[in-house]
Simulated scan of single mutants.
Amino acid sequence: MDIAALIAWVVTASGGFYMLGTWIQRGGIRQQQSGSSRMPAPVVFGHFALAAVGLVVWIIYVVADKSALAWTAFGLLLPVALLGFVMLARWIPVHRERAAAAYGAEVDVPAERHFPLPVVLAHGLFAVVTLVLVLLTAVGIGGS
């Protein structure tokens, strides 16, 4: 189960890294001053940093098989999930505006508007799977 969690985590991280790159490339950091981005940079980078640290802890757990590391990784995932829900809640109105707006009519488009819906959905789904698999592994269900 620990390897399944690792695979799910890496897939989740891939989608997250793609969205982070898109957000930066489309001016998300620059838009913090103008207020056009609804994603606060501290939330975006906090989510990324905690998820990356958690993934490293999980990799060390897979190698060392120490239950304290599994619980540490799970503990890191909780604020990652909370920040993820905050970003999702802030992204939904932007996505709805995209569906309602005519393309090319807006001057200052939020960077997060460029996130493809399938990537957002897959990232969220794999994040939930990762959280559940890490918890099950930490509890001792499924062996390691």
Rank of each mutant, 00 (worst) to 15 (best):
Y61R: 05
R26I: 07
Q25H: 13
R98D: 12
Q33M: 08
S34L: 02
I29A: 07
Q25F: 09
M87Y: 04
V44A: 11
G46E: 05
A81M: 14
L88E: 01
W91F: 11
V53A: 10
S36M: 02
G16P: 08
F17C: 10
Y61T: 01
G54C: 07
Q25V: 07
A51S: 06
G54W: 00
P42D: 07
Y103A: 15
A89I: 11
L82T: 11
R90F: 06
I92L: 15
A68H: 03
R90G: 07
G84C: 05
L88W: 00
I60D: 00
S34Y: 10
F48A: 08
W58M: 04
M39W: 15
V62P: 02
K66Q: 14
P42M: 02
F74T: 00
F17P: 02
G15W: 04
P40E: 00
H95P: 00
R30T: 10
G46D: 05
G75Q: 07
H95K: 14
R26N: 14
S14A: 15
A64R: 10
I29E: 07
A49K: 04
A81L: 15
A100L: 14
L55Y: 00
V63K: 09
S36P: 01
G15L: 09
H95Q: 15
G104Y: 13
V56L: 12
T72F: 13
A68R: 07
G35S: 02
I29F: 06
G35T: 03
A105N: 14
A64S: 06
A99T: 09
G28V: 07
Y103C: 04
P40H: 01
T22M: 13
A81I: 14
F74R: 08
W71I: 11
L50E: 01
I24S: 09
L88K: 03
W58L: 08
A51L: 05
F48S: 02
I24L: 10
G104E: 12
V43E: 00
G46C: 03
D65N: 09
V43F: 03
R90L: 14
R90A: 12
I92M: 13
W91H: 13
A68I: 07
A49N: 06
F85Y: 02
W58R: 01
W23Q: 12
G21Y: 05
H47D: 03
A64I: 08
G15S: 09
A52W: 00
R90W: 04
W58G: 08
K66H: 14
A70P: 08
L20C: 06
W58Y: 03
G28T: 09
G75T: 08
V94A: 14
A89R: 11
A99E: 14
A81T: 12
Q25D: 12
W23R: 13
G21H: 11
Q25N: 11
R38N: 13
I24Y: 05
V57A: 07
W91A: 12
D65K: 10
L88D: 09
G16Y: 06
M87L: 13
A13F: 11
V44N: 04
G84A: 04
L50Y: 03
A49W: 01
I24H: 07
S34K: 07
R26S: 10
T22Y: 02
T72V: 11
M39N: 08
A73Y: 03
S14D: 04
Q32H: 06
F85L: 10
V80N: 08
I92A: 15
W71L: 10
P42V: 02
